[in-house]
Amino acid sequence: MISDLFSLTVLLGIISSGIRLATPYLFASIGEAFSQRSGVLNLGVEGQMILGAFTAFYVVMNTENLLLGVLAAMGVGALMGLAMGFVSITLQAQQGISGIGFYLFGLGMSNLLFQLLVGTVETVSGFPKVPLPILSDIPVIGKLFFDHNILVYLAFLLVPIASFVLNKTNLGLKIRSVGENPEAADSLGVSVSKVRYFTTIFGGAMSGLSGASLSIALLNVFQLGMTAGQGFIAVALVYFGAWRPWGVLAGALLFSLVNGLQLWIQVLGINIPSEFAVMMPYILTIFVLTLSRSKYGAPSALTKPFEREG
């Protein structure tokens, strides 16, 4: 039975599961990476995600306009990000804990609004699969990598873009300097709080988009509590990726591929208790990170509010 795991069908299955499962993590983790690079830890990603998922779903259900759904989800996420920014930048609140507050708020609100406005579980017609011309005709690989919905492509495209912005642009430099040495950045005339507001709002919008990728692209349904802790995993993956978009991609893919693998292990009837199969992605993520002995440290000013001297 174990040998079945190495057949082509299984391998392709695992990879395509990995790609789909990684999509929401990529959006949320990259957004979170930005805000952490600037020094703000947002533990409320889960709340932003689920509220984004609901918003996108609700808008698409009523308007059947997918773009509007995406924008609305990002807008709601950005609003939550703005609130998070106000609390942690202007009011200098303890970031880990305010994040838990926003998580509970988002969870409760999405649930409440769903009960009041929708009432029963329904489907919407979300983003269709868009096979990329030519590329999707490549045998085997084409179907695997180039036959997804737009948000999947967008998530993967976001990685090089985010990496470029962080490392090669002036904005990226500002973000990094604000996260590493806010005093120095401040003395050079960079507005620490402006940059941090930008990243938390951006992070919120990305989390909202991540929720939308579930509710109107990958699953096309909203169900209560449907993000099921993925927002917390997304935060964890930022640490896995050492605050770097490519690292985040590696983490998201590793976690998702192992998740795909454990589903196949169960489907092939390999005899281990399902609980242990479900544990695998969590254990392996820790394990790989342990082996890799990451040399990167956290942004020095992470979770530290900035206040001008004097």
Binding site: L214, Q223, A228, Q230, L263
Partner: peptide
């Protein structure tokens, strides 16, 4: 093919389980 995902709320994982079973 019976798969228990050990979770009552993870819609994405349930969907992916279905994809896996369909692929099988």
């Amino acid at each position: 093919l019976v798969t228990y995902i050990n979770n009552f709320s993870d819609v994405a994982l349930a969907a992916e389980t279905a994809e896996t079973q369909i692929a099988a």
